[in-house]
């Protein structure tokens, strides 16, 4: 089998990058989306001002491996649990959830208890996010 065929036969990691809530700053989300794309992943970007319901419906339809939530509004303790609950209600508990944005340390711990696999704060290297995403899905 040639390398091309092997690539065609394996499924790229699919990631949904969502911006729940009201803040309108999506630079970070876009930088992460690009980095993951450049690492060979298929990245679905939802755009701004999504409700948790919209994000989970999109994740379901796109059959993603990972949901990344970018939140700079401070409402992460409301939005993230809502997304996780909805994923579980759809029987999608196996989807990896990560959060990026401005999240205080103690809140990050709280989110991880709820099932968030990683919280990436300002200054995180995109390489680290790529590495983590690959490892969490268990595919290159």
């Amino acid at each position: 089998m040639t390398e091309t065929e092997q690539r065609a036969g394996t499924r790229p990691i699919r990631v949904l990058i969502g911006k729940p809530g009201l803040d309108g700053h999506d630079r970070g989300a876009k930088i992460v989306a690009r980095a993951l794309r450049d690492a060979g992943m298929e990245v679905i970007y939802t755009g701004l001002h999504q409700t948790p319901e919209e994000i989970v419906e999109a994740a379901l339809q796109e059959d993603v491996d990972v949901v990344g939530l970018s939140i700079l509004s401070g409402a992460h303790l409301t939005l993230v649990p809502a997304v996780i609950d909805l994923l579980q209600a759809q029987n999608m508990g196996d989807v990896v959830v990560v959060v990026g944005g401005i999240i205080p340390e103690e809140d990050a711990e709280e989110l991880k208890k709820l099932g968030v696999k990683a919280v990436f704060g300002p200054g995180t290297e995109t390489d680290e996010i790529v590495r983590f995403t690959r490892a969490s899905v268990g595919r290159a």
């Binding site: 690539r7 790229p12 989306a33 690009r34 993951l36 794309r37 450049d38 690492a39 060979g40 992943m41 298929e42 990245v43 679905i44 970007y45 939802t46 755009g47 999504q50 409700t51 319901e53 919209e54 419906e57 999109a58 339809q61 796109e62």
Partner: peptide
Amino acid sequence: SSPFTGGALLGDRVRMEGRGSDVFMRS
């Protein structure tokens, strides 16, 4: 898809209004 990395940025949902589960969309 990128011919070099195989990655892709699928951004068509940005233009979509939330129509919930009424419309099934796949990128």
